[in-house]
Structure formats: C-alpha cells, structure tokens
Design a protein around this nucleic acid. Structure first.
Lengths: 237, 237
DNA sequence: GACGCGATCAAACACGTGTTTTATACATGC
DNA sequence: GCATGTATAAAACACGTGTTTGATCGCGTC
C-alpha cells in the first residue's frame, strides 16, 4: 500500500541510476531538455544556494517549468532528487586536491598544493564546481541523512591525506595527537574562507574578495600553517 | 487593524524593555514561576540546542506547560521571545575574553589568554554559559534578523581586540592586510572546536572531547598561531 | 482503431507552522 | 458590587509543506 508503483522509474538504485538511456523518448519538436534533466539542473542550482531544507518542491517545479508532481514521479521524493545532486557533487569534489598530487612530492609541497587549490575553489564565487562546495557547506551546517555518505567520500580521504603529510613533516606517526590538531588547524583556516551567509547579513558593508586577495589568503594559510607545524615539531609532545 | 492592542504588554521596545518591574502580579499561591519566566527558561534551552528555526511555538508552549498563545501574549511573537534570549546571551558573552585582561599585558599574553579562555568555553558541553555560545553558533550558520546586532556587540569587539594584539606583535599597524588574515586564522581555529552537528551525525563513533583534550587543543592553537604570526612578521609583506 | 505505457497535469490530501480570536477565570480599585 | 485589566485557555485561522491521486495527453504497436 501507499506505493502503487505505477510502473514509474525505480527510485532505489543509489549508485547505478542507468535510467534507460532515454534516447529521444520525448517529442522531438520541443527544443528544451526533458523534465527530469531540467529538474536536475534547477535542483543543482537551488540546493547549492539554499541547502536541502531551504528549497521547496514547489520552488523546484516552478523554476524548472515542471508540474508539482514531477519531482516525486522522477525521483521518488525530494530527498531522492537531492541524492542525485549530491552524487554529482561528490564526483566533482572527491577527486581534487588529494589525488592529483605527484607521489614523489615533499610533505611541504603537498600541503601547499592542497591549500592553494582548495582555498580558491572554496572562496571564489566564480569558477567551476563552486556549487559542489556549497552543497558540502550546507551539509556541514545542517546535515541531512546523506551526511555520513559525504563524510566517508570527501572528508575522511582529505583528513588522511593531510594527516600523512603533517606526520611526515613533523617526523612522527599519525597516531600522535599533535598531528590531528594540526590537521584541524589547517582545515579550519581553509574553511573560514568559504562564503558565509552570516557575514553578508551581519556586515552590510561586506564585499566579496578579489581573486588576488584569495590567492594571498591561500599563501598566508600555507605559510602560517607550515610555521606552526614546524614549531610544534621542535618543541616536542 | 489586525493589532487590537488588547492592553497587553507592549512588544516594541527593542532596547529598553523595562517591563513594569512585574513585582508580584501573579497569585502568590502557585509555587511555580510565572508563565513568562518559564517560557524564557525553556526558550533559552531549546533555542540554544536547535536554533531559532528549529524550535516551534508549540514546542515552547508544551515544555513550559503554557498555552499555545502564551508566547504571542507575553512577547508579541516568536522573534520577540528569541530577542530576549539573545539579549541575555549577549550580556553573557560580550564581556569575557577581551575585557578582563590586564591592560599592561603583552600581546602574546593577551592572545594566549584569549585562546585559553575562549576555546574551553566553546568546546566543552559542560560549564557555564555554553548555551550562549550555542546561540552564537546557530546565528552564524543560519542568521536571523538579529544577526547584525550580534555582529556589532560580540564579533567586532573581538576582532578589534585580536587585531590590535596581532599588529603589536608583528610590529605593524592594523591596516596591514597580514593582520586581518592572522586574526581570521586564529578565530577559525578556535571556532573549529565548537560542537558540530555534522561530525555527530556523520561520524557515528564520535565521542566528546575530555577537558584535558580541550586544554591541550587550546594550548596547541596558541603555540601554533604565535609561531605563524612570528613567521609572517619575519618574512615581511 | 484499440490498446498500453510513459509522462504530464490540476487538484486534493494530510500535516505542521505562526498567529489571532473569543471566552473565561481572577485579582484589584472604585 | 462591579467595572477593569491581566493572564490563561481552547479553538480556529491562514498559509506553506511534501506527497498522492485520478485524469489526460502523446506516442508507438499490435
């Protein structure tokens, strides 16, 4: 009961979602994308701007020029649509600053590379894939049932990457509590440059950072952090 | 129209709110506090746990053993009740780590004092006035119309205090962009130890920090930050 | 042409929200 | 005694939410 299954698309496969290829099932006359694709595009934009709870199904339907029932028809429920958006965000985010670093680089180079690629992506309202970062931020502030998934795919690998670099730099192992604290200090500084609704609301004269300021901030974080790590390595546990 | 003003308490004075002293207007027979006071107590707890939007008027009424209309009667509307809670939080927060420091102390002492008093208060679920910090955190994540007020009373004084100490330590003035970046780095590290719903939801094995770990984290932040500041002071702009 | 089927549509449903209304009990002041 | 003003109570209001329903359209196929 309560799920008539009207032979509609199956809303279960969390990972597969092959979805029948959907070649040209729609009327070839209309130039616009299929409803499902329009909903995904609109959902990507709205969820990244306002978070899962800040977007209503009616918002999505209206902006996608779709019927109110379209979300439930194509994605099962609102969370199903959000899950697909998060899946795209994870694909976009999880690769970046930890995997494309040369294996033979020094710990210092790794940390600098992490910061100088990560911070501009977080801070700049321009550029690609900021929407994925915004999804992450909303999840951190106001977690949804998808939070554990996100933590496993994007947070943990970053923590491990940074912890390994910091431990090597300090000449200790990853079980040393100082390593964890340094990783937290580094990550906290990076995240502080993420766009923040509070400062926009609370400080009327706030202006966005320029690209040059963002680069300066990234360099600052790297210098600042490496100095801190070296100092803690000297003074011992 | 739409506001009959039934000679009820005036819900307008944003700043004054003297509120007639309210000596013993209630029947002396009942041992419990007046409805207004019970609502304030419950609101303090619930708003600090779940934020303004996470608490409903029905939650407040139920837990305070008050009628549904009591919030609107005593405080005008839900935001009026929240405003009184925030006012108490501001009184509790704005004094602390910036004003009770000796005027003749060195910049390093000031920064250490700031961190070692601020971080335990942020991080510990025990101790006094954590509810006020939780209110601040909810405002930062999801600002209400009261955000500008909070920014002016608690954020700006802290920023000025830290900026002055950092500038003195670096031997430069507060207009130096490096000063602002160091203040952000310091504050970001402190805030990262604030209780975080994401890590509770996303990491099932999460456990609260002990008092000793919190003290160690505070010392870490101070050492780490002072090292970073000194390094940036050396290398120049 | 009749049928099946995926997709869309308008409408309704069920519920939760902040707020307002109307009535009533109770203490106080004249 | 009685009006007055304060406080509480139960119900309703007005609206927004996610979801479901039943009908209909446009196809392609037998």
């Amino acid at each position: 009961m309560s799920r008539p299954s009207r032979s509609a698309p199956e809303h279960r496969g969390a990972g597969s979602h092959v979805r029948n290829g959907r070649g040209g099932a729609r009327s070839a006359a209309s130039g616009d994308a299929a409803t499902r694709e329009r909903l995904l595009a609109v959902a990507t934009r709205l969820f990244s701007e306002r978070g899962f709870r800040g977007v209503t199904v009616r918002d999505l339907s209206r902006e996608a020029n779709a019927n109110l029932a379209a979300v439930n028809y194509h994605f099962g429920d609102k969370l199903g649509l959000y899950r697909e958006v998060v899946a795209m965000a994870l694909e976009d985010v999880h690769v970046d600053p930890t995997t494309d670093v040369a294996a033979e680089s020094t710990p210092e180079e790794r940390i600098r590379h992490y910061v100088t690629t990560y911070v501009p992506r977080l801070a700049s309202p321009r550029g690609r894939a900021v929407w994925a970062q915004k999804i992450m931020r909303h999840e951190m502030n106001d977690p949804t049932p998808l939070a554990p998934w996100i933590a496993e795919v994007v947070i943990l690998p970053r923590m491990r990457f940074l912890a390994e670099a910091v431990a090597t730099l300090m000449g200790t192992d990853m079980g040393d509590p100082r390593v964890g604290r340094c990783v937290v200090s580094l990550q906290a500084q990076c995240l502080s440059y993420m766009p923040n609704r509070f400062r926009e609301v609370a400080f009327p004269g706030w202006r966005e950072m320029t690209d040059a300021e963002i680069r300066a901030a990234a360099t600052h974080i790297a210098d600042f952090t490496l100095a801190g790590i070296r100092r803690l390595a000297e003074q011992g546990e």
